[in-house]
Structures are given as structure tokens and as C-alpha cells.
Design a protein around this nucleic acid. Structure first.
Length: 254
DNA sequence: ATGACCGCTGGAAGCGGA
């Protein structure tokens, strides 16, 4: 089973290049930037994908696609705060594997209320992940975590010292999540070196290959030894009208 | 770095993103 995660930065602007070459079995999408009714159901179906999604006007939006299968929806929001109506979490089962699409709040500027919101959201994710772990189900926690887990996951710079993505609190939250027993799939496959999944639109970051690793796959213990391959489809970031993220994928031998 | 990008809304700049 090939699973991809992709912050697409508006699904209706980038449908053409979404699934063309890599043919993943499951896709976790973030930043649909589409109202619930504007989700391109028919276009995706013509490409062979069924979907579950949570849309939102203007911002956010998450989806899970499956090729030749209908994802079995289990959750359309992260438990723990009934007042949180942003579309940042969806969860579904595909062929017996529980898949998420996580779009964790960015948290800038830091410090401030937005950063506090990010950390609070992270706590809810940690609590929900603990329940998923305890269930014993095979789980892939896929998504855009908006966290640079370690210094090796970002190009050398001091200009982002105050950025929410690299703060100790953000990194500690990610580490606490991992400590439940999850495996950081991409780092397991590629222990050393850059694994950028995002390059800022500004300042020629793509041309200079100054990126960061924000999109992650966390695997439950019963899936970690099923992991056989994974990578970043960097070529997608180099296309015209690209998202500022590149699709990231793993292969599980089930 | 006092940062030049992109997409959103509304119909101009301002916000959010990371």
C-alpha cells in the first residue's frame, strides 16, 4: 500500500498534477481551500479515487482519498474542543488501515495567542493519538504537522529563531507524541541528511534548495516493520503553479 | 532581512501561510 501526504494549497487549482505519475493507493490532503460543496468529487472519481473530506471556506480543509476503495470515515474533527470548527483533521479506514489527514495550526507569530492555539491543538492530538495507539489498530498518522522536528530538518539559518515551527515547545510536543511508540517513517528510512517537504514561495527558497521537513508519517508499532520504501516527490515542487509543499509518500508491505 | 510569494476575500489592501 502506497500512502502519500500532500499539502496541496487549494485542491481545485492543482488537480492536474495531483495523482498523475505516482498512483498512490491512499492520499492524505491538507489545505484544500475549498468549501465542502466545492470538493472535486467527480474529477477524482474519474481518476479512480473515492474520497472523504472536510471542507471549509477560504482556509484549511482536509481529505483522504483511496484508489478503488471507499474510505470508511471514522472522524471529521479532532476530539477535545467543540468550539474548534476549523477543518484540520479527518480520519478514515482504508483496507483495514486507519489513516489520518492532520493539518496542525501554524502558530505564528510567536509568542502570542496563535502559538498558544497551536500548542493546545497539539495536546489534543497527543491525547487522541494515545487512544489510537491503545486500540491496537494499524495506524498511519499522516499530515502537515507544521513542526520542524530537529535542526537537521531545516536549512541553516538564524532568521527563523522566533518561528513557531522550530520552537522547543513545538519540538517537545512532537517528541512526546513519538514517545507513545510511533515511528517517524521518513527518518527511519533516511536517518541522515535533508528531507525537505516544504520550500517557501519567497526569497528563491526552492531555487536555493533551502527547505524544511514539515510533512510526516507516524506509524503504529504493528506497521513499522511493514515499511519498505518512501520519498519526497520533489519534482512536483518544481512545476509551474506548484504548491509550496511537495508530496511525500511511503510504501507499506501489507 | 525593514524580505521581493501565493491564495484568499472583495472589489482595495490586508490577512494567513510557514
Amino acid at each position: 500500500m502506497k500512502v502519500a501526504t500532500f499539502n496541496i494549497n487549494n485542491i481545485n487549482k492543482r488537480l492536474d498534477n495531483l495523482l498523475a505519475k505516482t498512483e498512490p493507493d491512499v492520499v492524505s490532503l491538507q489545505e484544500l481551500k475549498a468549501d465542502h460543496e466545492a470538493f472535486p468529487v467527480c474529477a477524482l472519481r474519474s481518476l479512480g479515487y473515492e474520497a472523504v473530506w472536510q471542507g471549509e471556506r477560504s482556509w484549511n480543509g482536509v481529505a483522504i482519498l483511496a484508489r478503488n476503495h471507499v474510505p470508511v470515515l471514522t472522524c471529521t474533527s479532532l476530539p477535545g474542543n467543540p468550539e474548534d470548527h476549523q477543518a484540520r483533521y479527518i480520519e478514515a479506514a482504508v483496507q483495514g488501515v486507519l489513516i489520518t489527514s492532520i493539518y496542525l495550526p501554524n502558530g505564528n507569530p510567536q509568542p502570542g495567542p496563535r502559538f498558544n492555539h497551536k500548542l493546545a491543538w497539539f495536546e489534543r492530538l497527543i491525547a487522541h493519538a494515545a487512544e489510537l495507539m491503545a486500540s491496537g489498530a494499524p495506524v498511519v498518522l499522516a499530515g502537515d504537522y507544521n513542526v520542524v522536528p530537529t535542526p537537521q530538518d531545516i536549512y541553516p539559518t538564524r532568521s527563523l529563531d522566533n518561528n513557531a515551527l522550530i520552537q522547543p515547545e513545538s519540538r517537545q510536543a512532537f517528541a512526546r507524541l513519538l514517545a507513545q511508540g510511533w515511528t517517524d517513517a521518513m527518518r527511519k528510512l533516511h536517518p541522515d541528511g535533508p528531507l525537505w517537504t516544504f520550500w517557501d514561495y519567497k526569497f528563491e527558497r526552492w531555487q536555493k534548495d533551502k527547505g524544511m521537513r514539515l510533512d510526516h508519517f507516524l506509524l503504529s508499532p504493528n506497521l513499522s516493520d511493514r515499511l519498505v520504501d518512501g520519498g519526497v516527490d520533489r519534482w512536483v515542487r518544481g512545476q509551474e503553479n506548484a504548491s509550496d509543499h511537495a508530496p511525500t509518500w511511503i510504501m507499506l508491505d501489507l
